[in-house]
Write a protein that binds this DNA or RNA. Structure first.
Lengths: 224, 224
DNA sequence: TTCATGCTTCGATGGTAGCCGAAGCATTGT
DNA sequence: ACAATGCTTCGGCTACCATCGAAGCATGAA
């Protein structure tokens, strides 16, 4: 039964931690639930078997997210019922520094702006995303050629895909990787819109004032 | 947590048995869940404390029903999630004789027709029901005077209420009791619309052909 | 290669909650 | 009044399952 899965306090804590749609690593979920990693591992495999969460491997991490909105909906319903009887739970927000906004992930843009960029591109049908697979649309090709002088030929690579969904560390949502992600980040640098921070080892990406404006013009969501 | 309540198999069986909106007695629920009455009693008090079910005392029975549609909705959602992973449950239907249709409950009409009558009266604002309390509206008074020659004065009684919701044994939904329920049943008999079955001890109420028509004209729901 | 990190599997422990038998109330019927 | 029925409470038993320590695999870094 599915309810039994949600019934356990440890698992319930994990699930509510995932309710915002972001993905969390197994160890983070363990900490959220206040249990050791090995216990969390057991819980997570059960949740996965029950179809409530989906794993995504990223390097040596395993990110977990809720399978889909239906799951989130049912969880909200349960929370609603719980709220009526007086019981309630509160969730704490994230607690990260200012590099959440923009940073380098390998060779492409990550952080709030990176996620925002992919969101907008998806919204305007520049790319089509299905799970982890992303493909560039013809509208997307036109857009890139016109505004960023990026042609499809530049993106060809023997082993690396053009587009790839990469899980964002701070936002825990996807941003754009692949040769396109790299090319766009490189272009931003060439155009003096942004540059990696000078301090060695830092992954922060600083946007110039004009760069920020230009970026917002192309990929802004109206919230800045 | 609410989910923990639904998580237990015995409780889940009880809840799914209640999903059709009808009320069941504690012992019936115990049988449904395949446990002894004392275990069921423990489960039911937990479900009640969690706000999932509501009890209603009726003689020496205790009928339980789901508190409201929200609860049913969440349960359906959970069942939906469970269905996706392959697990499913089936429910069996009722198994009663033909006296389900119309019978005497103390001195008023019960059975399918009794429930149908109250439903229709509620629908047409002849009565207003809030939980177990029912009150006659002015429209209801006019209706009774016009079609059944029943006046409010006839219904007055020192200790017995005019209207009362009575839980129907076969339908497990409310029908109309109180002095009004009795007066209406008596009127049906006087009008030769219906009469108690001749065989002694039987609670069956037989409607005449014209009585059936007249009754349907006043309280029919279009399904007959 | 070797080391470190993240996660999983194995084995053992313990607490919790479901379960039933027996007794105790409450309500109804005779 | 007494018995019968329906349900609850109490006490003890048992089984399940969450939990953790330790060891085993992976992946990535040096």
């Amino acid at each position: 039964m599915v309810a039994a899965l949600v019934g356990d306090p440890a698992r319930a804590n994990m699930l509510t931690a995932l309710m915002n749609g972001r993905a969390l690593t197994a160890s983070e979920l363990a900490q959220e639930a206040g249990i050791t990693p090995q216990t969390a591992s057991s819980h997570l495999s059960k949740l996965e078997a029950g179809g409530l969460v989906e794993p995504e491997k990223q390097g040596r991490h395993r990110y977990y997210r809720l399978t889909d909105d239906d799951v989130a909906g049912v969880l909200e319903g349960l929370a609603g019922l719980a709220a009526r009887t007086g019981h309630m739970r509160v969730r704490t927000g994230p607690k990260d520094p200012a590099l959440r906004r923009a940073r380098i992930c390998y060779d492409h843009l990550a952080g709030d702006l990176g996620v925002q960029m992919l969101d907008t591109m998806r919204e305007r049908n520049l790319v089509r995303q299905k799970k982890q697979d992303i493909e560039l649309t013809t509208e997307g090709e036109r857009f890139l050629a016109k505004h960023l002088q990026i042609s499809s030929e530049m993106l060809a690579h023997p082993r690396r895909p053009v587009c790839k969904a990469c899980l964002d560390w701070s936002e825990r949502r996807h941003h754009l990787a692949g040769t396109l992600g790299a090319a766009m980040m490189q272009r931003f640098a060439e155009l003096k819109w942004a540059a990696r921070d000078a301090t060695p080892g830092s992954r922060v990406v600083n946007f110039t004032r004009t760069g920020e404006k230009q970026f917002a013009a192309l990929f802004g969501n109206g919230k800045d």
